[in-house]
Design a protein around this nucleic acid. Structure first.
Lengths: 246, 246
DNA sequence: CGTCACTTTGAGGCTAGTCAACGGCGGTGG
DNA sequence: CCACCGCCGTTGACTAGCCTCAAAGTGACG
C-alpha cells in the first residue's frame, strides 16, 4: 500500500521519526532524506480494523502520528469504551509505556491514518542526545497531564465542550474552522457526555451565534465569548487567595 | 514546641527521612538515632495556620508526613478550593516538584500534623543509591496517578465515596474502623460532591446497614457489598473486549 | 455562655442521562 | 440500478442524580 501525503495538508515536523535520527547520524541531508523515506517503517491504520496496540501490551516502540487521528481508549468492566485522548499529526503515542514498557490504553484509528515507528531504545538515545526531542516529549507529557487534570474537574457540558474545541483549534493551527475528525460519540466518550448532549450543546452554541456547524467541522465566530466560557477549565490557580493567618 | 508522638499510634517507617540517610552514612545506629532525632528538621503544622508551601512555589525539599493529615489543593479563578489529594503518615508530599522544582498545589494541614523535611538534592542521591527508596517513590507517584484517573470517571456519589472509604482503609492499616480526619466538606471537595451529598450518602450507607458512623470515623460492616459498589471505580480494563476485525 | 465550624435534614430546581423515534448518508448486495 | 442496512446526527419527552438554598442541631473552644 502506498503512503500518500497525509490527508491534512499541514506540514508535519516529525522530530521523533527514526528517519530523522538516521539523518542526524548520516549527515548528508538530501541523500539521506530519500533513503530514509524508503526505509521509514510507517504503518497505515484504518478505523474499525483493529488497534495499533492494546492496553497491557509491552511496547518496544512508540509511534508518531503522520496523518489522520488516533484515539487512546480504556474499557470498563462492562466493555464500554472510555476515550482517554486524541492524537493528531505530530503527536506521539505510546509514551505511557516509557516507564515500565507496558502501555495503559488501546490505540486505534479514528479516520484513515498513518503513523511512524520509533523504537523506544532509539528514542531514549535520541532524547539524551537531543534536548529538542526531550523537550518535545516533556511538553506533550505535561500537556496530557494538564488535560487529564482539567477533565477531572466538575465543569458543565458547555464548558468542557468549548474547552475541547479551543484546544483542538490550537493543536491544529487551522484558522477559525476546526475540523473534528471523530464522531460526536467519541467526543462524548472523551468528555464524559452522552452523544445527545454533545449534539444539543453544539446546537446551543450555534443558536446563540458563537459558532457555525458544518460537516464534522466547527467555525468559531465569537472566540472572545468562547474563551470566556472555557476560562475556568483551562487554568489552575494553585495559590490560596487569602491566607488564613500567619 | 515539642514533637509528641503522632496522634495515630501506627508505626511510621520513614524511609525518606534525612535522619535515615544520616544513619545510613554514619553507620552507628543507636547513637545516630539519638543524634538524628535531635537534628531532625521536623515541622509542626496546624490547620488554618497557613500552608506548608503554596502552588507555584519553587521547592528545595519534599516532605514526609510523620503524623496527622495533609491536604494538597488548587484553587479556581473564584478562589474555590479543590482538594487534589490527602496525605497520611508515611506519604511524601511535594513530589510534583521533582520535575522542574515548581510544585502545582498548595499543601496545608487538615489536623495538627508533623512533617519531616527531605531536601530534593539529598533525595535524588538517595534514590540513585537505594532502589528501595526509588521504588517507594515510584509507587506513590503511580498510586496518585491511578487515583486521579479513577476520580476522572463519571461515577455516582455512592461509588466515589465508597471507593474513597475503602482506599483510606487500605492506606491506614486500621481494621474495620476508618478514621477520616478531614471534614466532610474536604471529602466533598476531593470527590467533587457537595457536603450535603457526602452526608446523605454516608447516612444512606448506614441506613442500609453497610457501615456505622461515628465521630469522624466509619465502621465497615459489610465489606463485600462495599467492594461490589466500588468495583467499577478501581480497575481499568484497557483491553478492547471484542476486536472488530483483523 | 456565646460563637463558630461542622453536620444533618428538608424542599426545590437544574443539568445531563436515558429512551425513543426519525432523517440522511454510505456501503453492500441482489 | 435500487433496496436494504447500519451508523451517525438530530430532536423530543421524561427521569434521576446531585446541587442549591435554607434552617436547625451538635460539639469544641474561648
Amino acid at each position: 500500500m502506498p503512503f500518500d501525503a497525509a490527508p491534512t495538508a499541514t506540514k508535519i515536523d516529525c522530530l521523533i521519526c527514526p528517519i530523522q535520527s538516521c539523518l542526524a547520524r548520516r549527515g548528508s541531508s538530501e541523500q539521506a532524506a530519500a533513503f530514509g523515506d524508503m526505509l521509514a517503517p510507517r504503518i497505515a491504520l484504518m478505523p474499525g480494523r483493529g488497534a495499533l496496540y492494546r492496553g497491557g501490551d509491552r511496547l518496544r516502540s512508540v509511534y508518531s502520528v503522520r496523518g489522520g487521528c488516533i484515539k487512546a481508549s480504556t474499557y470498563d468492566s462492562d466493555g464500554n469504551e472510555r476515550i482517554r485522548g486524541f492524537y493528531l499529526p505530530g503527536d506521539l503515542i505510546g509514551l505511557d509505556a516509557l516507564g515500565d514498557g507496558v502501555c495503559l490504553a488501546t490505540a486505534a484509528a479514528v479516520v484513515p491514518s498513518q503513523v511512524c515507528v520509533a523504537p523506544i531504545s532509539e528514542l531514549r538515545q535520541l532524547m539524551s542526545r537531543s534536548p529538542e526531542v526531550a523537550q518535545r516529549i516533556m511538553e506533550q507529557t505535561s500537556r496530557e497531564l494538564a488535560l487529564a487534570l482539567a477533565l477531572s474537574g466538575d465543569y458543565t457540558a458547555e464548558q468542557r465542550l468549548v474547552a475541547f474545541l479551543l484546544q483542538m483549534r490550537d493543536r491544529m493551527e487551522s484558522g477559525s474552522v476546526v475540523r473534528l475528525p471523530m464522531a460526536q460519540r467519541d467526543i462524548g466518550s472523551y468528555l464524559r457526555l452522552a452523544t445527545e448532549t454533545v449534539c444539543r450543546t453544539l446546537k446551543g452554541l450555534e443558536r446563540r451565534g458563537w459558532v457555525s456547524l458544518g460537516d464534522r467541522s466547527v467555525r468559531i465566530l465569537n472566540e472572545v465569548k468562547l474563551r470566556q466560557i472555557a476560562e475556568p477549565v483551562g487554568l489552575l490557580h494553585a495559590q490560596e487567595p487569602v491566607p488564613h493567618a500567619a
